[in-house]
Write a protein that binds this DNA or RNA. Structure first.
Length: 898
RNA sequence: GGUCGAUUAGCUCAGCGGUAGAGCGCUUGCUUCACACGCAAGAUGUCACUGGUUCAAAUCCAGUAUCGACCACCA
């Protein structure tokens, strides 16, 4: 909109975000606006994106999380920092492999084993190529200002070398070891899982009561309660609490296991709770974590009676052999019942661990796995405890500390194919022996039988370990492995590591945050980030977690189609509270869109007045109170935003931006000066109002830019606030105030706005809200008021406000007393003494109450003595104001008689 | 069982010692030359409960109740 006068009709009445957003994103990319320059001399600001699953699709959690990151990144650029927001994706081992396996089954009717490792991995890569770009494009649609040239993937060549390197180092340090342990086994994915990947869910199950005959005393029984009769074949003992008087006599003796028939010992162990069930517990060391521990303490045999897929492995018992564990459970109960061993069955609620990905109950299982003893645990704990890493909200620091305080070794091996293969090689001749070895350690490496590292030595034949690593074993390296190759101290790393802010959900404190701190310490000798901002979890209006299966998760892309990316961003940020979960309501996104439209229309109004002003500040003496006032308020906004940014209070930021634009700028300032934009307005008046509009709007758009990046670019360009080819996103925020010394006249504006409100109010009370022809007569007007009478009349919806101290109001003329004078609303046929008396009496009563309240407080010596002086002063001022008004009112009321 | 949150207008949430707030929704009136994705006016609250500290408590402390998250877990 450079020099021709705009015709309002050329512009659509409502803002249409879709095309605008697409165009500006392309322009930013074209101009390389997102590049983080490692050679820059500006101070660095960096964020690494929490990498979404490569084949994932965008959900509202991502929108919240990435909008926050984008806001921080864009604001940092405006503050003159060199910003790197480093994006990428995660290979998500189990999740991705499961999807591809399902596709293989559905399309070709084959399992991964049937087509073999190599062919299967080819299919996964193909899947990744096909679906990998989706979420990245969705993030672009949202407006994310990531440096896409640096996009990383956890299975990239350079990244994979980091994974191998880290594994090798930790192995050499003796922190990685292999052994047969009780792990969480997923019978569907056929892999071990870490404790963090197991989700406990309350289940309604059954508690089966059985009786076992005492071997040396036939006819005598011990009663046992269990939820898992199908594992009975794996029982090797019955345990009771040593203090339990009912069963104490049997300790050391034997009872008869029903099937397969065997004599098993009764042992005493403190773990047994005498209060639960019968107080006697069957011990199945192979299939229960607690039983395993008891078994270890008492040196019991381990009888594994399950196949990896959860079917029964017990050829001795053809009735159950081969059955699925849950089918077998019912069958086992039936057999017990037939033999008269089953006493009763009770309904029972217990917690069962489920596989996070496959959503089936996990099976505690003993298997050969790789484990990691976490490095730098103390350093990681101290970093947060000492505030070197600052958590927001702070309370998550406690959760973090608790987990680190009870940390268990991490099971890092997965029996999957999609992932980083464990970089351990066995000398072919000894491979079989070594793979089955009870433990494997440094000694084997020293002996030259195993090799740990990316590529085995050329000499000899080597066989690689079959397992891959847990996905998080690559994710925990993310902040530095994305910035440099192994052994390379890259310029990027030097410039941007440690990163400034990490924005993530509190649900992955253990999975990711804590582990990154440890890895950062161990491998870069520095903390990976300075601040961690934990976002809220997005829920539906009923408070339920968003989930695909519930169908309560709106597609952000649909929302962007409907409301625009900016509308979605702003709407979501407005409702995202600092500490707790956010309940998502589409109506809020609609508000975001409405807000965008409001700003757009304010600009549209301004375009009536034609060409750009060049953003030159007019001489101070030409500014009217409304101009001074809005400049002052904008300065106030800048300051309060700065404070809120420093504390990451996003809801405060959006509230302040919303309030300023809608209430202060549009409802007050713009209403006061809008007539200046019309053709009939005097040239100089118009020039001044246009200039102030432009100065304020240009700066406001800059302040708003991190939240609504596309809209602000569009309007800045259209309004001619920036030369062609320049961007709001690249412009630095100027320091200092627009109006450093605020003249006293600035305060007049608020008084006019307040009085106008009272006058509109008065009109409405007499059902005159729509009458534009009324006049107000003011007595005892403030000395400057008549200069602003025209604006006051316009804002009040009146034809005029006239001063006339000699005005003799007919009795019963409605009136309002404000800080600017006594305003009468004389109108023939309207005057009704009685109703005006009643109205005034009501107002006087209200005022009296206020005055009494103030007085009571001020007469309390303890208040005057103890309260802060400024609080007392405020109270005094308030009292004086009320009292003055009250007296005026009373006087005028008295004139009406009784 | 342990830890940490939440409880304020019909709804979603701010406020966290000094007169109870916003947006939506609702009522009424407006198609007024930026915007009905709008304008103006209005109604609506024992700030969960019970005690305590304080001149003063929605706000601080203790306890109770309800809801939620995380950790642990009993077969």
């Amino acid at each position: 909109m450079s020099d021709e006068t705009a015709d309002l009709n050329e512009l659509p009445k409502a803002y249409e975000p879709q095309k605008v957003e697409e165009r500006w994103y392309a322009a930013w990319l074209e101009a390389n606006c997102f590049h983080g320059d490692e050679e820059s001399s500006k101070p660095p600001y960096s964020i690494v994106i929490p990498p979404p699953n490569v084949t994932g699709i965008l959900h509202l959690g991502h929108v919240l999380n990435n909008t926050i990151q984008d806001i921080l990144a864009r604001r940092a650029r405006q503050e003159g920092k060199e910003v790197l927001w480093l994006p990428g994706t995660d290979h998500a081992g189990i999740a991705t492999q499961t999807k591809v396996e399902r596709q293989l089954r559905e399309e070709e009717g084959k399992t991964r084993r049937e087509i073999g490792r190599e062919a299967f991995l080819e299919k996964v890569w193909a899947w990744k190529e096909k679906h990998g770009g989706i979420i990245i494009n969705q993030l672009k649609r949202l407006g994310c200002s990531c440096d896409w040239d640096r996009e990383r993937f956890t299975m990239d060549e350079d990244y994979s070398q980091w994974v191998s390197h880290v594994f090798t180092e930790l192995f050499k340090q003796g922190l990685i070891y292999r052994g047969k342990r009780m792990v969480n086994w997923c019978p569907v994915s056929l892999t071990a899982l870490s404790d963090e990947e197991v989700i406990m869910k309350p289940q309604r199950s059954k508690l089966y009561y059985m009786k076992y005959e005492v071997v040396d005393s036939p006819g005598e029984f011990i009663e046992i309660a269990t939820t898992r009769p199908e594992t009975l074949m794996g029982d090797v003992a019955v345990a009771v609490n040593p203090k339990d008087e009912r069963w104490g006599q049997y300790v050391g003796r034997k009872v008869r296991r029903p099937f397969p028939d065997a004599e098993i010992p009764v042992i005493a162990d403190d773990h047994v709770d005498p209060e639960f069930g019968t107080g006697a517990l069957k011990i199945t060391p192979a299939h229960d974590k607690a039983d395993f521990e008891i078994g270890t303490r008492h040196d019991l045999e381990i009888l594994d009676i399950l196949h990896p897929d959860g079917t029964i492995n017990c050829p001795e018992l053809p009735d159950l052999d081969g059955l699925d564990r849950f089918v077998a459970r019912k069958k086992a109960a039936k057999i017990l019942e037939e033999r008269g061993i089953l006493l009763k069955v009770e309904e029972h609620e217990n917690n069962v661990g489920f596989s996070e990905r496959a959503d089936v109950p996990i099976e505690p299982r003993i298997s050969m796995q790789w484990f990691l003893k976490y490095p730098c645990v103390d350093e990681a704990a101290n970093a947060v405890a000492d505030g070197e890493i600052k958590y927001r909200p702070e309370r998550w620091a406690k959760t973090y500390a608790q987990w680190l305080g009870n940390i268990q070794d991490w099971c890092i091996s997965r029996q999957l194919w999609w992932g980083h293969r464990i970089p351990v090689w066995y000398r072919k001749e000894k491979a079989f022996e070594l793979k089955e070895a009870e433990s494997l350690a440094l000694a084997d490496m020293d002996a030259g039988d195993i090799y740990v590292g990316e590529v085995p030595p050329a000499e000899g034949d080597w066989v690689q370990d079959e397992d891959v690593l847990d996905t998080w074993f690559s994710s925990w390296l993310w902040p530095f492995a994305t910035m440099s190759k192994v052994g390379e101290n890259s310029a990027t790393l030097q410039k941007f590591y440690p990163t400034t802010d990490l924005v993530t959900g509190p649900d992955i404190i253990f999975f990711w945050v804590a582990r990154m701190v440890m890895a950062g310490f161990r491998f870069e000798e520095q903390l990976p980030f300075k601040n961690v901002f934990f976002t809220s979890i997005v829920r539906d209006l009923k408070g339920r977690k968003m989930s695909k299966s519930l169908g309560n998760s709106p597609d952000p892309v649909d929302l962007m189609d409907k409301y625009g990316a900016d509308g979605l961003r702003f709407g979501l940020m407005r409702i995202a509270p600092v500490g707790t979960d956010v309940k998502f309501d589409e109506a809020q996104i609609e508000e975001g869109r409405n807000f965008a439209n409001k700003i757009y229309n304010a600009c549209r109004l301004r375009l009536m007045a034609g060409a750009g002003s060049g953003l030159e500040m007019p001489p101070l003496e030409k500014l009217r109170p409304y101009h001074l006032d809005i400049l002052t308020k904008l300065d106030g906004l800048s300051e309060s935003l700065e404070a809120s940014f420093a504390e990451y209070k996003f809801n405060e930021l959006t509230a302040a931006l919303y309030e300023f634009l809608w209430s202060q700028f549009c409802d007050q300032f713009l209403e006061a000066v809008k007539r200046d934009f019309r053709d009939e307005a005097d040239g100089e008046t118009r020039e001044v109002s246009v200039a102030i509009f432009d100065i304020v709007m240009a700066r406001y758009l800059q302040l708003l830019h991190p939240f609504m990046p596309h809209l602000t670019e569009e309007l800045s360009a259209r309004m001619g606030y920036l030369p062609d080819g320049e961007f709001v996103m690249k412009a630095e925020l100027p320091a200092g105030k627009l109006l450093p010394d605020v003249p006293a006249e600035a305060a007049y504006a608020n008084q006019v706005y307040e009085t106008a409100g009272r006058l509109r109010n008065l009109k409405a009370e007499y059902n005159l809200a729509t009458r534009k022809d009324v006049k107000f007569v003011v007595k005892k007007a403030a000395d400057w008021l008549m200069a602003e009478a025209d604006v006051l009349a316009f804002l009040s919806g009146a034809a005029a406000v006239e001063a006339d101290d000699s005005f003799e109001a007919p009795k019963g003329t409605p009136l309002a007393v404000t800080g600017l004078g006594e305003f009468f609303l004389p109108l023939e046929g309207l005057i009704d003494v009685e109703s005006e008396k009643r109205r005034l009496d009501k107002e006087i009563e209200k005022l009296e109450k206020e005055v009494t309240k103030c007085l009571k407080k001020l007469q309390n010596p303890k208040f005057v003595e103890n309260a802060k002086p400024e609080v007392v002063q405020t109270e005094k001022d308030r009292h004086a104001t009320w009292l003055e008004k009250l007296n005026q009112m009373r006087e005028l009321r008295d004139a009406l008689g009784d």
